[in-house]
Design a protein around this nucleic acid. Structure first.
Length: 497
RNA sequence: GCCCCCAUCGUCUAGUGGCCCAGGACGUGGCCCUCUCAAGGCCAAAACGAGGAUUCGAAUUCCUCUGGGGGCACCA
């Protein structure tokens, strides 16, 4: 396709502090889409400057989640790239250098206040109903004096020297100009006393050094947006295009997703976490499709999109700043849509692990045959074993009472089964085409309804009251097994007479 | 408490001054199809938060209010 947009360099920058959830999955997706459609680069950067919050295995989980969604990055900690390293914990010296520079330029200053004192100040302010902020004690220190204290090894942080007066205007691509009163802004800490940069500094430096053209991130960054812009401006760097995505609200629409909500969701058979979605039976394309349409839309009627569709159609100009309540019912709908869009072959492959997990030996050949007849009967893939397990079992065990058709007696039901057996037994092979017409004729002469007779057979052959189409199912199961199962049913019915 | 953002059917959304007594989708109800269950088709109910202002004309622009959300850490 033709594209007038210049190549975008974007980054997805999660911190490895927990499981990757749908909100960050969407952020990653939008970044990826912009990169791919403009022929730019999608960079994965791990923001692990907070050593205390690291979670073992979280980084690996990020890789797996992104891969599962089908989002491949062009540069990252695992594959390297021209702006290495891509793990912020390995970029400590870079941040320190820029931190020093900030102080030298007079845009930042050393602060020696202890965490204890800060906590007390905050407490005091809150008691007085003031908004918590740094009181500016060290801002007044003589810079040379402060530098000397730092040289002697005194514990310190670096703070940003926020302008005290006037306003700062920043531009968000979806919201336009946002004006902050500088007097409401705080002298944020940029560099911790352990020598690690805080997010604000580290991200700004990295975004600049890595040549990021578009920062697409969550709206939780809106309150500190001015700080980030100001850091860029202090260094004289060009600002990227900023896009702040709305948050996902819990299904009720009341508040954003919390840990508690996440647990509740899981109890309901849903999950907010990417890693759970595969085993719950969701297709990556469905996740991508669903999540893309929360906060973005193409036009007034298109809803079905695959990843390549989205690469072509996505646009940051159509991003919606309003928060969106997550809707799992619609997720199910999209999953069904994507399941039905799969070829028999693809669906069969997708189904293999679910049968395995259910302890059912499902051969590929049969799986390909049943795929077309169970395709429109599933909402999630994990339903397949329950729906189609009978294809793979040596015998089924119907509930005897289910064999008695509604409106018929056990005797009548047994007769229907016997007569059906006779008709089917005359066939050298059962196919949907050759079995259905004579069976319909039989039902006609019997004088009962299709639903009654076919219902008996359905339970007899599949062991279930609900199943894929009867004769297609019989064809796949095979004549001998079908007859054996009907015989078993007849025996069962006769015992109830 | 302070700062920032947001505001169309229950939910996701289209809509950028007249094409809108507001369109699509999920869900809901009904009908059709039908061997069960689905899928599919058709139909229906369902929204511009309130008040001002601008304009010949406002869902669309501006203001106020209300409501919702986010943030206020040596977390990200």
């Amino acid at each position: 396709m033709t594209n007038r947009l210049s190549p975008a360099r974007v980054r997805f920058a999660p911190s490895p502090t927990g499981s990757i959830h749908l909100g960050s999955a969407r952020t990653a997706l939008f970044n990826y889409l912009l990169a791919r459609q403009t022929g730019g680069q999608f960079i994965l950067r791990i923001e692990d400057t907070d050593r205390k919050r690291l979670v073992e295995g979280a980084e690996q989980e990020i890789y797996e989640g992104l891969h599962w969604m089908g989002l491949q990055w062009d540069e990252g900690p695992d594959i390297g790239g021209p702006c290495e390293p891509y793990r912020q914990s390995e970029r400590k010296e870079i941040y320190q250098e820029y931190g020093r520079k900030l102080v030298e330029m007079g845009a930042g200053y050393y602060c020696f206040c202890t965490a204890d004192r800060l906590a007390k100040v905050r407490e005091e302010q809150q008691r007085r109903k003031e908004s918590p902020h740094y009181d500016g004690t060290c801002r007044l220190l003589d810079p040379d004096e402060a530098a000397k204290r730092v040289a002697t090894g005194e514990k310190h942080v670096i703070r940003f020297k926020m302008p005290r007066e006037g306003t700062t205007t920043v531009t968000d691509h979806l919201r336009g100009d946002i004006i902050f009163e500088n007097k409401h802004l705080d002298d944020y800490i940029l560099m911790k006393s352990d020598g690690f940069a805080l997010y604000h500094l580290a991200a700004s430096i990295d975004d600049h050094l890595m040549g990021i053209t578009h920062v697409i991130r969550g709206s939780e960054w809106l309150p500190t947006f001015s700080l980030h812009a100001l850091i860029h401006r202090a260094f004289g760097w060009q600002e990227p295009t900023w896009c702040h995505l709305s948050v996902f609200l819990k299904p009720s629409g009341k508040g954003k997703m919390s840990k508690r909500d996440a647990v509740e969701l899981r109890n309901d058979g849903n999950s907010f976490f990417l890693k759970d979605l595969e085993s719950l039976g969701y297709l990556p394309n469905a996740v991508v499709n669903w999540v893309a349409l929360m906060g973005w839309s193409f036009d007034d009627h298109s809803e079905f999109f695959t990843l390549p569709d989205l690469v072509e159609k996505f646009s940051i100009d159509k991003l919606n700043p309003a928060p969106a309540a997550i809707n799992f019912t619609k997720f199910d709908h999209f999953n069904g849509l994507h399941i039905r869009s799969l070829s028999a072959d693809e669906l069969a492959s997708r189904l293999v692990p679910y049968f395995e997990r259910a302890g059912i030996q499902a051969d590929r050949e049969t799986l390909v045959k049943i795929a077309p007849i169970i395709r429109e009967r599933m909402v999630t893939l994990d339903e397949a074993p329950e729906l189609a397990g009978f294809f793979f079992k040596a015998e089924v065990t119907p509930e005897p009472t289910d064999l008695i058709a509604k409106g018929l007696t056990a005797t009548q039901s047994a007769e229907a089964a016997r007569k059906s057996y006779e008709v089917l037994a005359t066939l050298p092979e059962i196919t949907a085409e050759n079995a259905e017409p004579p069976m319909r004729a039989l039902v006609e002469t019997l004088g009962w309804s299709l639903g009654q007779v076919f219902g008996i057979l359905r339970v007899a052959v599949t062991g279930q009251k609900v199943s894929p189409p009867l004769f297609e199912s019989m064809a796949i199961i095979g004549r001998d097994k079908v007859l054996a199962r009907i015989q078993t049913a007849i025996d069962l019915l006769e015992k109830m007479v």
